[in-house]
Simulated scan of single mutants.
Amino acid sequence: MERSAKDYLFQQIALITQAIANPHRLELLDLLVQTPRSVEQLAQASAMSVANTSQHLQRLKQAGLVVGERQGTTVIYRLTDPVIIRL
């Protein structure tokens, strides 16, 4: 494997492990395993503020674990891949 490919792979693994190393983000992933939800729905279900939930979702999004899809004025978040359930 080429050095740059290894560096990229290790960087991606680090992003993912940092993203899931937080109990709040793990809870958000658990909620998204059940069904796609809006930031507001996730905030309510996890007893976090909308702002805090949004920040956690951005970390999960940067790690490639979730994606947001705009539906009108609302963004609905879902897992990027069902294999994430195995986490």
Rank of each mutant, 00 (worst) to 15 (best):
E2Q: 13
L9K: 15
A51F: 01
L32K: 03
D7W: 04
A47R: 15
A63Y: 03
A47L: 09
I13P: 06
D30I: 14
A5W: 00
T17V: 14
H24K: 14
L65P: 01
V33F: 01
V67W: 03
I85P: 04
I76A: 04
Y8M: 15
S38V: 04
I20D: 04
H56M: 11
R59L: 15
R3N: 06
L28T: 03
Q12R: 15
L28E: 02
K6P: 00
K61M: 11
A63K: 10
H56G: 12
L32A: 00
S46D: 09
P23C: 08
A51K: 08
D81Y: 03
N52R: 14
F10D: 09
E40W: 08
Q18G: 07
I13M: 09
R3D: 11
T74A: 02
V39H: 06
T35K: 11
F10L: 15
I85Q: 13
S4K: 12
G68S: 09
L9Q: 12
Y8A: 15
Q12D: 05
I76Y: 01
R86T: 12
S46C: 15
G68C: 11
L42Y: 00
L87P: 03
G64I: 10
Q12E: 09
R3L: 13
I84T: 14
A14Y: 11
T74D: 00
Q62C: 02
A19Q: 06
V33A: 09
T74S: 07
A43V: 05
Q12I: 14
H56P: 07
V39T: 10
A51G: 04
P36F: 01
D7A: 15
D30H: 13
K6N: 11
Q55P: 00
P82A: 02
T73A: 04
Y8W: 10
A51T: 07
A5T: 08
I84V: 11
Q62D: 14
T35H: 06
L31Q: 08
T74M: 03
F10N: 10
L15M: 15
L32T: 01
T80E: 04
L9D: 08
Q71T: 06
H24F: 05
R70V: 01
P23L: 05
A43F: 03
L26W: 02
R37G: 01
S46A: 15
Q58C: 09
G72Q: 01
I85Y: 02
V66Q: 08
R37D: 01
V33M: 09
V83E: 13
G68A: 03
V33Y: 05
Q11I: 06
T80Y: 05
S4Q: 11
R78W: 00
Q71K: 05
R59W: 10
E2P: 02
L9M: 14
L15I: 05
M1G: 11
K61S: 14
Q62K: 10
D7R: 15
L57I: 00
G68H: 05
V66H: 01
K61T: 07
G64A: 13
